[in-house]
Simulated assay, not measured.
Amino acid sequence: MSAAEAVSNASTASAAAHEDAPLRVAVVVGSVREGRAGGAVTDWFLGFAERHGGLELDVIDLAEVELPLVMPGWGGTPTPEAAAVLADVTPRLADADAYVVVTPEYNHSFPAALKNLIDWHHGQWRAKPVGFVSYGGLSGGLRAVEQLRLVFAELHSMTMRDAVSLHGPWSGLGEDGVPRDTTVSEGAAKNMLGQLLWWGRALRTARATQPYEG
Results as ranks from 00 to 15, higher is better:
Pro78Glu: 00
Pro78Leu: 09
Pro78Met: 13
Pro78Gly: 10
Thr79Asp: 14
Thr79Ala: 15
Pro80Leu: 13
Glu81Pro: 05
Glu81Tyr: 07
Glu81Lys: 05
Glu81Ala: 09
Glu81Cys: 03
Ala82Phe: 06
Ala82Ser: 05
Ala82Asn: 01
Ala82Met: 04
Ala82Ile: 04
Ala82Arg: 00
Ala83Trp: 00
Ala83Asp: 08
Ala83Ser: 04
Ala84Arg: 06
Val85Phe: 01
Val85Tyr: 03
Val85His: 02
Val85Ile: 05
Val85Cys: 02
Leu86Pro: 04
Leu86Phe: 01
Leu86Ile: 03
Ala87Gln: 02
Asp88Tyr: 05
Asp88Cys: 03
Asp88Lys: 04
Asp88Phe: 05
Asp88Val: 00
Val89Leu: 04
Thr90Met: 02
Thr90Asp: 04
Pro91Asn: 03
Pro91Asp: 01
Pro91Arg: 03
Pro91Ala: 04
Pro91Met: 07
Arg92Phe: 08
Arg92Lys: 06
Arg92Pro: 01
Leu93Val: 00
Leu93Cys: 00
Leu93Arg: 05
Asp95Thr: 09
Ala96Ile: 04
Ala96His: 02
Asp97Cys: 11
Asp97Ser: 07
Tyr99Ile: 12
Tyr99Glu: 12
Tyr99His: 14
Tyr99Gln: 11
Val100Leu: 11
Val101Thr: 12
Val102Phe: 12
Val102Arg: 08
Pro104Leu: 00
Pro104Glu: 04
Pro104Trp: 01
Pro104Ile: 02
Glu105Phe: 07
Glu105Ile: 00
Tyr106Ala: 02
Asn107Arg: 15
Asn107Tyr: 13
Asn107Ala: 15
His108Pro: 06
His108Asn: 10
His108Glu: 09
Ser109Arg: 11
Pro111Ile: 08
Pro111Glu: 01
Pro111Val: 06
Ala112Ile: 09
Ala113Tyr: 11
Ala113Trp: 11
Leu114Ser: 07
Leu114Gly: 08
Leu114Ala: 13
Leu114Asp: 01
Leu114Met: 14
Lys115Asp: 15
Lys115Ile: 15
Asn116Asp: 15
Asn116Lys: 05
Asn116Pro: 14
Leu117Tyr: 07
Leu117Glu: 03
Leu117Ile: 07
Leu117Asn: 05
Leu117Gly: 00
